[in-house]
Computed example of a mutant assay.
Amino acid sequence: MDDTLLRRLRVEQARALLDNADPHHAVMLACDLLVAGVDGEAVVALASESARTLPVHDANRRLAAVLAELGLGEPDLPTAVALIAADTAERILDGSITAEVGTHGLYVVGYEGSQLDDLLPAVSALASRLEDDLHGRADDELRTQLAALARTILNRARTQAGKGG
Rank of each mutant, 00 (worst) to 15 (best):
D2N: 15
E100W: 05
V35M: 08
A59K: 00
L34P: 05
D32G: 12
D3M: 10
G37F: 09
A80I: 04
E49D: 10
L18G: 10
L116R: 08
H57A: 15
L130P: 10
L9Y: 01
V56R: 15
L67V: 06
T152F: 02
A47C: 04
L70A: 07
G165M: 07
E69L: 10
D22M: 04
D87Q: 08
D32H: 09
A127R: 13
T79Q: 12
L146N: 05
V66A: 01
Q160Y: 13
L119K: 02
E41F: 08
G40Y: 04
I97V: 15
A45Y: 05
I92P: 00
Q145H: 03
D118I: 03
G162S: 12
D117T: 11
G136S: 09
S96M: 05
T144P: 01
G162D: 12
L46I: 01
G102M: 07
V35E: 13
L5A: 06
E100N: 04
L54M: 04
P78R: 09
V38F: 07
R7K: 13
A148Q: 11
E49S: 15
G95I: 04
L130K: 06
Q13N: 07
V44M: 09
V66N: 03
L67D: 08
E112C: 09
Q145L: 00
A80M: 05
D19I: 04
V27S: 00
L126T: 00
A85F: 03
A80V: 05
T53S: 15
R129I: 08
P55W: 08
L106T: 04
Q115I: 08
A42N: 02
Y107V: 07
A21M: 02
V56K: 14
G95E: 03
D140C: 07
H135V: 06
T152I: 11
V123F: 03
L63W: 12
A45F: 02
G73L: 12
H25Y: 00
Q115D: 15
A65F: 07
L6K: 12
R156Q: 12
P23T: 03
T144I: 01
L77E: 12
R52W: 13
L46R: 01
T4Y: 11
A138H: 05
L149C: 05
A86G: 10
E141P: 04
L142A: 01
S114Q: 10
R61P: 01
S128L: 11
L9A: 02
A65D: 15
V56T: 13
P75Y: 11
E74F: 08
R137H: 13
A68S: 14
L77W: 06
A59N: 01
P55K: 10
L54G: 05
R7H: 14
A85Y: 01
A86K: 07
A99G: 15
S128E: 15
L149D: 09
E112A: 15
N155D: 15
M1G: 11
T88M: 04
L142I: 00
